[in-house]
Design a protein around this nucleic acid. Structure first.
Length: 565
DNA sequence: TGCCCTTTGAAGTGC
DNA sequence: GCACTTCAAAGGGCA
């Protein structure tokens, strides 16, 4: 139970969150330090990203080069994601979330999880080997922690009562895997399912050739042999991407993956009709049934025509509308945090009494920052893969295409918001979510079940900035991002967001507050204080608390922002 | 019914 | 290059 190791072990990254509440004097002293720390973090982050990109780029490029003609059948991005989430949810439980178990990209865990897929659990062993080979980072324990493939519980899929399983059965990569979830159609173990392929010479499970893999997929006879390994883009040996983009790219239809009946029912029961291939042509006009594709009729906001991307515009309203109807809404690929969120949300919800996503997201946000570098790296990698895949699937797609498809938020048009407004609102928000967070975080951390992902002690300790007073540096030695609080801190300290953190202005409060609103335009993570309060508060914490309360009570909001007018 | 809230990150826009 | 905006997921809250 790494999360309860006293000291900095307080969880959820509360440590670093405290930094914004330091006394000014201390702040000043820390400014330079924090700036450099921030820089370090940024560097770390970028290095990590580059690292993972480099690691994968080679294989990716290789794959791209060698990519034969993967005929991956794509299914809807979302459908697949959700589908797997569902399947996994049934499998998992909310068990402990231990960093070591993030094992790596247990793509192959899926089949294992959805055991019907592997009636004999044959794939799992190779999967483990495979994973370990592919992802050196994956620790053996993590892999070992996987459900024993040899003892598949045929009934657990139908078991609606969460079984205590490894939390990581819902793996960061599951969303990605779901790009072609059909490949792992649970409950529909192909009768022709073949056992794992072992190297006749070494006896070591080897990555089967696509044609060899095909039996694993519930494909129609004609499709068999055409489907690349679902992990193709991650499998150097295969050198194939899950989804190859034909020369025509976006316009070329992809071969649809034959969805067997059970799969179909599963999916259809899980996904809204619009997600199902009921398109006039059975799929997206691009021919790419992708989770990112959402029926415009459902996803698009009315009156959003004027915001349509150029490509969406048409000369006449009529045709324009038609085109819109035809043009599916291609969602943005999920970023690392989103992937993490998607995976962990269920757990948080299960472990907390929370139901409000806003509150849950706050918790998730803190947890995200509490993740070790390795853990986050996995999500970054996953996100990168998602983007990569997305870009391959939709070469012509641009995030801009989705601009204006959402109704502009009201607050976006409220330029007259005053700091007071923000303070009041945020106070309310904080109050609103405070109990929830407390309820969740405290118990969770106390019983050590989920809070799990605080920065690993070792990692945290690895940081030279171990002193309790320097939580900022210490708390996130591995964090690749500046925390939300960190952002605030940064604003607080430097008045300038860091790198990618520029999005601190994102969403709600940001829009209207981004310019001169006090940094408190966002709710202060009181939870961090709770964390502090839950454990013997250090002098620093006390000071931070005091400082924090003072800030809020005296409303010196204008004092905490350099950018304010 | 549909926007808001909340989170982080990616990508777009504008200067 | 920087600052800012939008969107991605999720689901309860609320008008």
């Amino acid at each position: 139970m790494p999360q309860l190791n006293g000291g900095g072990g307080d969880d959820l990254g509360a440590n670093d969150e405290m930094i914004s509440f330091k006394d000014e004097g201390e702040q000043e002293e820390k400014i330079s330090e924090n700036v450099s720390a921030e820089r370090d973090l940024d560097d770390l982050k970028s290095s990590l990203v580059n690292e993972s990109e480099n690691n994968s780029s080679s294989s990716d490029s290789e794959q791209a080069e060698r990519r034969p003609q993967p005929r991956p059948d794509l299914d809807s991005y979302e459908k697949t994601r959700d589908y797997f989430s569902e399947a996994l949810r049934r499998q998992q439980d909310g068990g402990f979330f231990k960093s070591p178990h993030y094992p790596g990209y247990p793509f192959l865990m899926i089949p294992d999880l959805t055991n019907p897929y592997l009636s004999n659990g044959a794939l799992s062993p190779s999967a483990r080997t495979y994973l370990q080979m592919k992802w050196p980072l994956l620790d053996v324990p993590g892999a070992a922690g996987l459900k024993d493939p040899r003892s598949p519980t045929p009934g657990h899929l139908s078991n609606k009562v969460p079984v205590v399983q490894h939390a990581h059965h819902v793996h960061p990569l599951t969303p990605l895997i779901t790009y072609s979830n059909e490949h792992f159609s649970p409950g529909t173990p192909p009768s022709h399912l073949s056992p794992e392929i072992l190297d006749p010479k070494t006896g070591i499970p080897r990555t089967p050739h696509p044609s060899e893999l095909s039996p694993y997929y519930p494909l129609s006879p004609g499709a068999v042999g055409q489907i690349p390994h679902p992990l193709g883009w991650l499998v150097p040996q295969q050198g194939q991407h899950m989804y190859s983009i034909p020369p025509g790219g976006f316009r070329h239809p992809y071969p649809a993956l034959a969805m067997n009946a059970s799969m179909s029912s599963l999916v259809s029961s899980r996904f809204s009709p619009h997600m199902m291939p009921h398109h006039p042509h059975g799929m997206h006009q691009t021919g790419i049934p992708h989770p990112a594709i959402v029926s415009p009729a459902i996803k698009q906001e009315p009156n959003s025509h004027d915001h349509m991307s150029p490509s969406m515009h048409s000369k006449s309203p009529g045709p324009a509308k038609k085109e819109e109807d035809k043009k599916p809404h291609i969602k943005k690929p999920l970023n690392a945090f989103m992937l993490y969120m998607k995976e962990m949300r269920a757990k948080v919800v299960a472990e907390c009494t929370l139901k409000e996503s806003a509150a849950i997201n706050q918790i998730l946000g803190r947890r995200w920052h509490s993740l070790s570098r390795e853990e986050q790296a996995k999500y970054y990698e996953l996100a990168r893969k998602e983007r990569q895949l997305h870009s391959q699937l939709y070469p012509g797609w641009s995030a801009r295409d989705n601009y204006g498809k959402r109704k502009k938020r009201k607050r976006d048009n409220k330029p007259d918001s005053t700091p007071e407004d923000f303070s009041i609102r945020n106070k309310n928000q904080c109050v609103q979510y405070l109990p929830s967070e407390k309820m969740c975080d405290s118990p969770a951390s106390s019983h050590g079940s989920m809070l799990d992902s605080p920065a690993t002690p070792s990692a945290a300790l690895a940081s030279p900035a171990a002193p309790a007073a320097t939580h900022s540096e210490q708390a996130q030695p591995l964090s690749l991002t500046t925390k939300p609080e960190g952002r605030l801190h940064h604003h607080f300290l430097t008045g300038k967001p860091s790198g990618s953190a520029s999005s601190s202005s994102s969403s709600s409060s940001s829009s209207s507050s981004s310019h001169s609103a006090p940094i408190f335009s966002r709710p202060i993570p009181f939870s961090s204080l709770h964390h502090s309060m839950l454990s013997p508060p250090s002098p620093f914490h006390q000071a931070a608390l005091h400082s924090h309360h003072a800030l809020f009570q005296s409303q010196p909001l204008s004092l905490v922002t350099k950018s304010s007018d």
